[in-house]
């Protein structure tokens, strides 16, 4: 019964996005263009460089990694992430939600998941054509289990992604604007997620540091799982790390939300 409300919100948000589908499509298409340029760059580096393997990646593995990372980024690395949460708090829209029998947090989660699913759906069509074009040069998943792990960890990544932006967005309880911290998050995420280039390309010190952050789950970890580059122990460690990050994010969110509600003045109504 409870879930039906959020399914309805999901459906309504879907309808809203359908109205602006061209905008989202162009944004996703921009990401695809960027991915194709990255593929061209790596093709070039392999062609003109003497190395057959760069940082543990052969050319087909690298192309697969970049394209796979591109698919994930098509629904994770979008602009305006957290704008609705921040605006609802700053402009008083939250008050209307508080008066309704729904949890604003679950409502934002449903909306965010809808956005991710919608852009993934758009991106998938475009990427299907690209995958078809690169058919002979891509590495298939090492096993069905690896493909499942990719999907499972991508789902965890989507939740971590929402949680991180949620924390930075509800800072709107204390600040007029929150886009500064969210921009900072996005900037770090672009590099630290491994979407632009695999983290294993970084020197050991950097890699160690980047491994401590949750951003690796946005591309590096799912794609390494797909390529079968992690042992069973490493998979278990990555899973526990992801769950630990989710728990940390959830705890921080709860504390911030409770404190935020105490200072919320419903301004802007």
């Amino acid at each position: 019964m409870q879930l039906r409300k959020y399914v309805s919100i999901f459906k309504l948000t879907w309808q809203q996005y359908l109205a602006y589908r061209l905008n989202l499509f162009l944004e996703v298409f921009g990401g695809i263009f960027q991915t194709l340029i990255t593929v061209a760059v790596w093709t070039l580096l392999f062609r003109f460089g003497s190395a057959q393997v760069i940082a543990g990646f052969s050319q087909p593995e690298m192309i697969t990694y970049v394209l796979g990372g591109g698919v994930i980024s098509s629904f994770l690395l979008l602009h305006r992430q957290g704008d609705d949460i921040s605006d609802d708090i700053n402009k008083g829209g939250l008050s209307a939600w508080l008066a309704k029998p729904v949890s604003p947090n679950l409502m934002w989660l449903a909306k965010d998941m809808c956005r991710k699913y919608f852009t993934f759906f758009i991106g998938l069509f475009a990427y299907a054509v690209i995958f078809w074009f690169f058919a002979g040069r891509l590495v298939p998943p090492v096993s069905v289990f690896a493909a499942f792990l990719l999907l499972f960890f991508t789902l965890l990544a989507a939740l971590i992604h929402f949680g991180l932006f949620y924390i930075f967005s509800i800072m709107a309880f204390w600040f007029d604007q929150t886009w500064g911290p969210r921009t900072l998050l996005r900037v770090i995420m672009e590099l630290a997620s491994g979407i632009l280039l695999p983290l294993s390309l970084f020197p050991a010190g950097w890699l160690q540091f980047l491994n401590l952050l949750p951003f690796k789950f946005f591309a590096y970890v799912p794609m390494q799982l797909y390529l079968g580059n992690f042992s069973a122990t490493e998979i278990a460690i990555e899973f526990l790390t992801a769950v630990a990050w989710l728990l940390i994010i959830f705890s921080v969110s709860v504390v911030l939300w409770r404190r935020g509600m105490k200072v919320y003045s419903a301004s802007g109504i």
């Binding site: 600040f175 007029d176 929150t178 886009w179 500064g180 911290p181 921009t183 900037v187």
Partner: peptide, 20 residues
């Protein structure tokens, strides 16, 4: 600069982006 906190974090993010 009416929202100084977010302004300075935004500036830091932009500088970091150039470095990255």
């Amino acid at each position: 600069i009416s929202s100084r906190g977010t302004f300075f974090i935004g500036v830091f993010a932009k500088m970091l982006r150039a470095i990255l």
